[in-house]
Amino acid sequence: MTADHPDPVEERYIAAGGQRIRVSIRRGTGVPVVLCNGIGASLEVLDPLVAELDPDTTVIRLDVPGTGGSPVSCAPYGFPYLAWLLGRILTRLGVGVVDVLGLSWGGALAQQFALQNPRRCRRLVIVASGTGMIMIPGHPRVLAKMLTPRRFRDPDYAASIAGDLYGGTARTQGNDVAELIGTQLHAGSKMGYAHQLLAGSVWTSLPTLPAIRQRTLIVAGADDPIIPVVNARIMTRLLPHATLHIHDGGHIALVTNATELAPVIETFLHT
């Protein structure tokens, strides 16, 4: 960017709730969109999606404790705490009402934030996600590959398992997925990853979905080995104001095929 056109993206650290959280803000107009990432992933992984969103849209991203540039939490945490923490961060930024999008593990955080903040969360987008510990799981052989953050530290390993783990275009473009994962800052914290696994293992939104009153878009891939598409159909039935969009891709199509899915998301948010 030139001096006359300063870079609209700001990165900063915010102290809240006993944590020091790395946050990225792309300044724009309208209702800001908060992006919540998948397990073990730092905010850079969502760069392809952000690049496809309207450049005039305010986009807020963060690294949860123990991922990317955010230090590991001194104690385990759950999604209710993270949703409260996200609210504190937004307040520190001077941000009020937001739309929230969650990918995979981040979809749980997005659901919890919408539940705890019915007036602050305008619309909700849940991508490649489910209802937590009470859901239809993927095959145990697939889920076993997610028990450690090795794929974030070992590009060759990431490329070798990408197809089986993520499905969709990752079945033939494993090296591209490994390269995308490699863009992360300080990837692969074992303790941070363990905290995220624990948070997901004791949480479910299944009994509370009818209480989430926001208009919701559920995006699911027909070839998602981690979150079978039936979970999206169940969530659509239980959420009072949900719309379902099923695409042909896999678990991380939101970033590997952002050119297709970003318009779907923007149409939902702006109509």
Rank of each mutant, 00 (worst) to 15 (best):
I136P: 00
I136N: 12
P137Q: 05
P137T: 04
P140E: 14
P140Q: 12
P140C: 13
R141T: 15
L143F: 06
M146P: 04
L147R: 14
T148F: 05
R150E: 07
R151C: 04
R151Q: 10
R151D: 00
F152V: 02
R153D: 03
R153Y: 01
D154S: 04
P155K: 12
P155D: 10
P155W: 13
D156T: 07
D156N: 11
D156C: 04
D156S: 11
Y157Q: 02
A159K: 03
A159G: 03
S160Y: 08
S160I: 00
S160A: 15
S160L: 04
I161T: 08
I161G: 10
I161V: 15
A162W: 01
D164C: 01
D164F: 00
Y166L: 15
Y166C: 13
G167V: 03
G167R: 06
G168S: 09
T169L: 08
R171L: 04
T172Q: 14
T172H: 14
Q173T: 14
A178R: 06
E179V: 05
L180M: 14
L180W: 13
L180P: 12
I181L: 15
T183F: 04
T183A: 08
L185M: 12
L185V: 14
L185K: 12
A187F: 02
A187D: 07
A187I: 06
G188C: 01
S189H: 09
K190S: 11
K190R: 11
M191I: 15
M191S: 09
M191V: 15
G192T: 08
Y193V: 03
Y193C: 03
A194V: 07
H195M: 01
Q196A: 15
L197V: 07
G200D: 07
G200Y: 09
G200K: 06
S201Y: 05
V202D: 00
V202N: 01
T204G: 02
S205K: 06
S205C: 06
S205H: 06
L206P: 01
L206G: 01
L206F: 05
L206R: 02
P207W: 00
T208W: 10
T208R: 12
T208E: 08
L209M: 06
L209S: 02
P210V: 12
A211P: 00
A211V: 02
I212L: 11
R213L: 12
R213Y: 00
Q214H: 07
R215S: 15
R215Q: 15
T216C: 13
L217D: 09
I218R: 01
G221W: 10
A222C: 06
A222V: 08
D224F: 06
D224S: 10
D224G: 10
I226P: 04
I226Q: 08
I227G: 02
P228F: 08
V229D: 13
V229P: 00
V229C: 13
V229W: 12
V229T: 15
V230A: 13
V230K: 01
N231G: 08
R233Q: 12
R233W: 02
R233H: 10
I234F: 11
I234T: 13
I234P: 10
T236P: 02
T236Y: 00
T236F: 00
R237P: 00
R237N: 07
L238K: 08
L239A: 06
L239N: 05
P240G: 03
H241C: 13
H241W: 03
A242F: 09
A242W: 08
T243D: 10
T243W: 04
L244S: 09
H245R: 04
I246L: 14
I246R: 07
I246T: 14
H247I: 04
D248Y: 06
G249M: 04
G249K: 05
H251S: 10
